[in-house]
Nucleic acid binder design. Structure first.
Lengths: 159, 159
DNA sequence: AGTGAAAAGTATAACCA
DNA sequence: TGGTTATACTTTTCACT
């Protein structure tokens, strides 16, 4: 069951999704609450898993992984045990930043951060060799990143 | 030109990409540096834009946006001014979390966080109506999220 | 660059309305 | 739940190696 998020919670989350370092006192001043009320809500939001993590975002270019690739991977669907193995393989591969299982012909969509095309090819070769159920994949290279983030829009409270 | 990141910088970044709240003293203990050395490096990494932001990650389900959709949008390429307009449209739409311009037939790939299929359809209808250069799009719904993050793997230093 | 110590700023926790 | 206060912790600044 999901937790009720009121107007204050939502405003706190909206602010923290842009800047997790903002002090509770500053947030409180913005939304009309005392610093400790903000802290109490913050502790609750972490505790209940509404906030799943607070992380630093690193520039991929400066970190030496300037190339983003979107890979559509098609797999045989009739092998549940190989599917599990593939999921574990994906989870263990740090170059894969995001991965979804999507509607369509047994497809996974992967977002991959690599140094160059060669590194991507090596990664996908390894993927194919180590996962027999992977039939083929399609590669699209990001020519430009327009937007990058995990922020979820905060709608007005339902209640 | 990119900044040199030594072994310590990389270890700090690796830690902070998983947990931005970790105190400098704890990080220092892990990597064999004093708290103030860690703080000084941290300030430099922020200053130079290696760390672009520190953000809270919010659970989309609890925030009321349980549905992730991957949209491949095909546009007419012969209209640079409409391309700019589309980019601005994407930038201004909070439901679009990520967007890349990719190799292929004038395609954008969008990652969209919505409440339900209806909200997605309404969004894409609006996209088409307000951007005349959008020819068509393909929709894939995420049936499962295997991995979600923006963490960049920290390779050993080149130097 | 790194260390260590004082000062300033934040978070945490206890208590009252 | 929200506010206030006291305490503990963290970051910031500075003097020194």
């Amino acid at each position: 069951m999901s937790i009720e998020l009121d107007k204050f919670d939502r405003r706190i989350l909206a602010i923290l999704q842009a800047d997790a370092r903002r002090p509770a006192e500053t947030i409180g001043a913005q939304i009309g609450l005392s610093a400790s009320a903000v802290q109490r809500r913050l502790a609750r939001l972490r505790q209940e898993g509404v906030i799943t993590a607070e992380v630093a975002i690193v520039d991929p270019v400066q970190a030496g992984r300037p190339l983003t690739v979107i890979a559509d991977v098609e797999v045989e669907r009739e092998r549940p045990e190989l599917q599990l193995r593939l999921k574990q393989w994906i989870a263990a591969e740090p170059a894969i930043q995001e991965a979804w299982y999507v509607t369509g012909e047994g497809d996974y969509v992967l977002i991959v951060a690599v140094r160059d095309v060669q590194a991507y090819e090596a990664l996908m070769h390894k993927l194919m060799v180590e996962n027999a159920n992977v039939l083929r994949f399609r590669t699209r290279v990001a020519l430009g990143t327009l937007k990058r983030g995990l922020a979820v829009p905060m709608d007005p409270p339902a209640a």
